[in-house]
């Protein structure tokens, strides 16, 4: 049976100004998976993330971590926040220190580690995010992409079991965005559960093991990427675009250039491989006949 690390059960939440941000959200996040949340601005993704980390407390419903209900006492919250880290969208809202080294040391120091342990964790996090050479640079002289990496190192240094990133590729150029996704892959390979929100369907489709579609404070649909993007009615209802890989696959199938047994390709390379073998073969067959 799958082990669920984070769960939301019927979570409802309204902000003090009356905005109903979450309207009965149910989420099951499997341990060690890569999960993507898709949805328009204001769909409730960030609000949900803040629940996973105990910053917000549901008005109704439950958040569960490792199968146990989350407590909201001081010690329980610290324990949750140690294990579930959030990287916020705007780095300027997260970075409080002018020194990169000091910034990253904040989290592990709060965990009560010794100076040596903290320094070692900080260095490891900087190496993983490739910002080692920025150690002595002041935060305000970093580029946007560099700041973003410092934010990730901030959370990595706390060694969380779950890493949540709010729109990690927003405002990054395509190359940096790809780099960022490779970083998440690497973090995932170390056994951490990685959750991120994005507007980029192509990216979510290729990267995620499981996808949640959110709309108006509720989960509109969920599933494996291969199935969720073939659900016409769901896509229509949520106004979500189809990834170009799926479009391409469907078009090729319609033309009869792919045999029905060929699975949906998850990456560009997979698609090219299919064209090479499958479509190529049928093309040859056409000519011979």
């Amino acid at each position: 049976m799958a082990e669920y690390i984070l769960e939301a059960g019927d979570v409802e939440f309204s902000y003090p100004d009356g905005t109903k941000a979450l309207k009965g959200v149910n989420i099951l996040i499997e341990k060690g998976k890569k999960v993507a949340f898709l949805g328009a601005n204001g769909a409730g993704k960030t609000t949900l993330f803040l629940h996973f980390n105990g910053i917000l407390r549901p008005n109704r419903g439950k958040i569960r971590f490792q199968g146990r209900d989350v407590g909201y006492g001081h010690a329980a919250l610290l324990e949750l926040r140690k294990n579930v880290g959030i990287v916020f969208q705007d780095p300027d809202n997260q970075l409080f220190s002018a020194s990169v080294l000091q910034e990253i040391s904040f989290g592990p120091l709060n965990l009560g580690l010794s100076r040596e342990d903290v320094l070692q964790r900080v260095r490891a996090a900087m190496a993983a995010t490739e910002i080692t050479e920025l150690e002595r640079r002041p935060t305000h002289l970093l580029s946007y992409g560099q700041k973003k990496r410092v934010c990730i190192a901030d959370v990595l240094a706390m060694h969380p079991m779950v890493m949540i990133c709010d729109e990690p590729t927003a405002c990054l150029d395509p190359k940096l965005a790809r780099h960022m996704m490779e970083l998440f892959d690497q973090i995932s390979r170390e056994g951490k559960t990685v959750i991120l929100s994005t507007h980029d369907v192509d990216l979510a489709y290729s990267w995620a093991d499981y996808i949640y579609l959110m709309k108006d404070g509720a989960v509109a649909g969920e599933g494996k990427p291969e199935s969720i993007f073939r659900n016409e009615t769901l896509l229509e209802r949520t106004g979500m675009e189809r990834p170009w890989l799926v479009d391409m696959y469907l078009e090729l199938s319609k033309k009869g250039w792919l045999s029905n047994s060929v699975p949906l390709p998850r990456t560009k390379e997979e698609l090219f491989g299919i064209i090479e073998t499958d479509a190529g073969m049928s093309h040859v067959k056409c000519c011979v006949l």
């Binding site: 803040l50 980390n53 910053i55 610290l78 926040r81 140690k82 880290g85 959030i86 916020f88 705007d90 300027d92 809202n93 997260q94 409080f96 220190s97 020194s99 080294l101 000091q102 910034e103 040391s105 904040f106 989290g107 120091l109 709060n110 965990l111 100076r115 903290v118 320094l119 900080v122 901030d154 959370v155 706390m158």
Partner: peptide, 24 residues
């Protein structure tokens, strides 16, 4: 607005009344 967001971000990293940072 920023101060509110910063406070949230600090809380998410186990902030408890002190901005502990390491001295190089």
């Amino acid at each position: 607005h920023r101060s509110q967001m910063l406070f949230t971000a600090l809380l998410a990293r186990c902030y408890t009344d002190e901005l502990n940072v390491i001295e190089p």
